[in-house]
Amino acid sequence: MKRLKTVILGLALAAGMQLANAADVTLRLHQMLPPQATIPSKAISAWIKKVEKDSGGSIRVQHFPSMQLGGKPPELFGQAEDGVVDIIWTVLGYTPGRFPKTEVFELPFSTGKAEAGSRAFHEYVEKYSADEFSSVKLIAAHVHGPGLFHSRDPITRLEDLKGMKVRGGSRIINIMLEQLGATPVGMPVPAVGEGLSKGVITATTIPWEVVPAFKVQQIVKNHAGFSGDKGLYTQTFALVMNKASYDKLPADLKKVIDDNSGVEVAAMFGAVMDAGDAVGLSLAQKAGNNIVTLDEAETQRWKDAAAGTREAWYKEVAQKGIDGPALAAKAAELVEKYAGK
Results as ranks from 00 to 15, higher is better:
V335G: 01
A287P: 04
P212N: 12
P100I: 12
H30R: 04
S245T: 02
R60D: 08
A80G: 03
K53A: 14
S41N: 09
Q218H: 09
F109G: 00
G193H: 10
G340A: 12
R301V: 08
W302P: 04
K72E: 14
F269E: 10
V272F: 13
K113E: 05
S261C: 00
E311W: 06
Y128M: 00
P40I: 13
V292E: 13
D274L: 11
L92R: 09
G321T: 01
S135Y: 01
F109P: 04
K42I: 07
G70S: 11
T293A: 06
E316S: 10
L158T: 10
P190W: 00
L13P: 13
V256N: 04
A287D: 02
E115W: 04
L11S: 08
M268F: 07
N260Q: 05
L283S: 03
G71W: 00
N174Q: 14
N290E: 09
M32S: 15
V272N: 02
T204Y: 11
S282F: 03
N289G: 11
F64H: 15
G308Y: 06
T293W: 03
K53V: 13
G193T: 11
K127S: 15
W89Q: 04
N242C: 09
A23R: 11
D131T: 03
L69N: 06
Y233D: 08
P96V: 14
Q36V: 01
P212C: 04
A312M: 01
Q300C: 05
A339R: 13
R60K: 14
A37P: 07
A130C: 12
A284W: 04
V200N: 03
G225K: 07
V220N: 05
M273N: 12
Q79V: 09
L180K: 08
A14H: 05
G117T: 00
I172R: 08
A140W: 08
A244G: 06
H142N: 14
S55G: 06
T236Y: 05
A307G: 06
F77W: 10
A312E: 13
W47K: 10
G147A: 06
I87Y: 02
P154I: 11
G270S: 05
K162E: 14
D229L: 05
L76Q: 08
V256G: 07
A23L: 02
A120K: 02
S197W: 15
L13R: 01
N289K: 10
P325E: 11
D304S: 09
M187W: 09
N174E: 13
V166Y: 07
I88M: 08
R28V: 00
L161P: 06
A326Y: 10
A287R: 10
D54E: 13
S118E: 07
A15Q: 13
V185A: 06
Y94G: 10
S118M: 05
Q62E: 15
H30D: 13
P207E: 14
V216N: 12
S66G: 12
K101I: 06
P100C: 03
V185E: 09
A37E: 01
Y128E: 05
L177K: 05
K50H: 12
S170N: 14
A80C: 07
D82F: 01
G340C: 03
L148F: 14
L9K: 02
K330W: 00
Q68D: 09
V240K: 07
I88W: 09
A20H: 01
A271G: 15
V240Y: 08
S110H: 00
S282W: 01
K113F: 00
T204R: 02
G324R: 12
